[in-house]
Simulated scan of single mutants.
Amino acid sequence: MVKYSRKIRQRSRKYDKITQEEREQIVKMKVNGSTCREISELMKKNIKTIQSIKSIEKKSEYADLKKALIDYGFQQIMEMQSLDKTNLKIIGKQANKLIKEQLEEQTSKFWNLIPEQKKFSNKRRIIQQIILNIVEKVQNTNQKMNDSQQTTIITKEEFEEKKAEVPSNIYEQPIPLHLTKAYYYLMSLLISHKNNYAFLQ
């Protein structure tokens, strides 16, 4: 009897697996006033599982850590003047090195953001997600910088400054001889064509 009750207590401490549909249903029932015990009995789920569900969207336990490391890695890479920021492979390698260093150091400011039960576990998948986000962020920044360089907007003040640099006697300067000859040649053709048209009328 003692062994049986111990098994029940051990099982009650575990969390049940919840689908996204069940999560939505639990949240709606809570909003409508149902207690965790009522939901637990109705859905045949552990009461601790019901109590742990606060929202429809499941928040990753690594969410704060990922955000902090993405911002850190991005800032560090952008400050590296000698790094070729157009080479995504190089950026990925550098980001991987930076992130691993921070996750392996227990004195790092990011160490406390790691969930307690996951501090010494394999974080390969999380590291890959962080690196991909850093690379994408650097790539987007490069694209914005290129776009801003290609599109130059001149303000009214800048126009006035440039206008002052233009020589005031630009229109008084002599026209080159070859342009003058070309002008008179075209005018002669135009006048000749106009006279022929008048004659036909």
Rank of each mutant, 00 (worst) to 15 (best):
F120V: 07
K14W: 03
N122W: 01
K194D: 09
E79I: 08
M145T: 08
L177D: 15
K118G: 03
L132Y: 01
R125I: 13
E160P: 06
N140F: 07
S5M: 09
I90H: 14
I131R: 01
Y184T: 10
I90F: 10
F120C: 04
E160I: 13
L69Q: 03
K30G: 10
Y72N: 09
S5K: 09
T152L: 14
I90A: 15
L200C: 11
I47W: 06
T86M: 11
K28E: 10
K100M: 13
N140T: 04
Q106C: 04
E105I: 05
K163A: 15
Y72G: 07
I154D: 06
V166R: 12
E105N: 13
Q143W: 03
I56M: 11
E158C: 06
T86S: 08
E38R: 00
Q102F: 05
E61T: 10
K119R: 15
E105P: 02
K144W: 00
Q128L: 08
N122I: 03
E161P: 05
K67N: 15
I99R: 01
K123G: 01
N122T: 05
C36I: 01
E38L: 01
Q129I: 05
Q150G: 12
R11F: 09
Q143T: 12
S188E: 14
Q25G: 01
D84T: 05
T151W: 06
P174G: 08
I50W: 08
Q76M: 12
S40Q: 06
E24R: 08
Q10Y: 14
K89G: 14
Q75G: 05
A68T: 03
K93E: 15
V166A: 11
K85H: 03
K45T: 00
V135P: 00
L69E: 04
S82F: 14
E38M: 02
K118S: 04
L179C: 10
Y171D: 15
P174Y: 11
L186H: 07
N133P: 01
I53G: 00
I18G: 00
K123A: 05
S55G: 05
Y15I: 11
A63G: 06
R23Y: 02
T49S: 07
I154W: 11
V27W: 02
K97D: 15
Q76D: 10
Y15H: 13
I18S: 00
H178D: 14
A198M: 12
K100I: 13
Q76L: 05
R9C: 10
I154N: 07
I114P: 00
Q94T: 14
E136K: 07
M1E: 10
K89W: 09
V27Q: 06
T151N: 14
K137W: 00
N133E: 07
Q20A: 12
I127G: 00
S40I: 03
Q201W: 13
I134S: 02
E172P: 03
A164M: 12
F74C: 08
L190C: 13
E38V: 00
S148T: 11
V27Y: 02
R6C: 09
L83N: 07
K123R: 10
S55D: 11
I114F: 05
K17L: 11
A164L: 12
F74G: 11
K7I: 04
L98C: 07
M43T: 03
I8L: 12
I130A: 04
V27F: 00
I154L: 14
Y183H: 07
N196V: 04
K156N: 09
